[in-house]
Design a protein around this nucleic acid. Structure first.
Length: 218
DNA sequence: ATTACGATTGCCT
DNA sequence: GGCAATCGTAATC
């Protein structure tokens, strides 16, 4: 029990602590949606079923020099222009996938990058060599996709239809929210569009984040 | 046709 | 803190 994480979420759509959002939830602009997604459950149906609580997000918009959509629609970023509530998954650095939730109306080219989860069901050992234990299994956009089994085949998928879903907490988690500039970008650094739960051990950030904390402990 | 470069990660010093 | 890995995409020639 070294990780000390909150208990895994129960499945589901009907009763229980989670509920399905409507389309309108995703109609907000990316920065607002990024904040709203903190505390929500990301779930992938299957065997095993996997889930985790979203604890770190970043917003990207069409007027944003850091965004893939900044220079118009291409074959690669096409699904980023889908109406809010679908998946935009892309491949980077020749080895990693990153998962985004589209925001706003169709054609608006905005999305929220999901950067870290607190592992729920089906995440982590065995078979996952993350080097930092369970709490780091989904701390970072690339690691999150690997841990959840999300790949390019999910690009453009409707998040209200599944198998990849977003579920909202019935009770607001009310945890401290940190705001910062985004990670790994070369332009647009002045925008404070990264949102995270300050009390989470699973946030990907270097300083004060899960990685440096784990390193300090050892 | 060629090339430069990532919305990253993990291993090295 | 630095840097290699690894390859699809998009800008450039």
């Amino acid at each position: 029990m070294e990780d000390g994480l909150a208990p895994a979420a129960l499945s589901g759509t009907g009763e229980g602590p989670w509920r399905c959002p409507g389309r309108s939830f995703f109609a907000a602009g990316a920065p607002e949606l990024a904040r709203s997604l903190l505390g929500c459950l990301l779930e992938v149906e299957g065997d095993p079923r996997r889930s985790g609580v979203i604890v770190e997000t970043e917003a990207y918009t069409e007027e944003d020099p850091a965004s893939h959509s900044a220079r118009g629609m291409t074959a690669r970023n096409r699904s980023m222009f889908d109406a809010g509530g679908s998946a935009y998954v892309y491949f980077v650095y020749g080895m990693h996938c990153c998962f985004n939730v589209t925001a706003g109306p169709a054609g608006s080219g905005e999305a929220v990058l999901i950067r870290a989860l607190e592992p729920g069901e089906g995440i982590g050992p065995p078979g996952q060599e993350t080097g930092g234990g369970l709490s780091l299994a989904a701390s970072g956009p690339g690691k999150l996709c690997r841990a959840m089994g999300i790949g390019l085949e999910q690009n453009g998928a409707d998040l209200l239809a599944g198998p990849v879903r977003i579920l909202l907490p019935r009770k607001s988690p009310r945890r401290p929210v940190g705001i910062s500039s985004r990670i790994g970008i070369s332009r647009g650094g002045e925008r404070m569009w990264r949102f995270f739960f300050e009390d989470s051990p699973c946030v990907s950030d270097g300083r004060g984040g899960a990685v440096s904390r784990a390193r300090r402990r050892s």
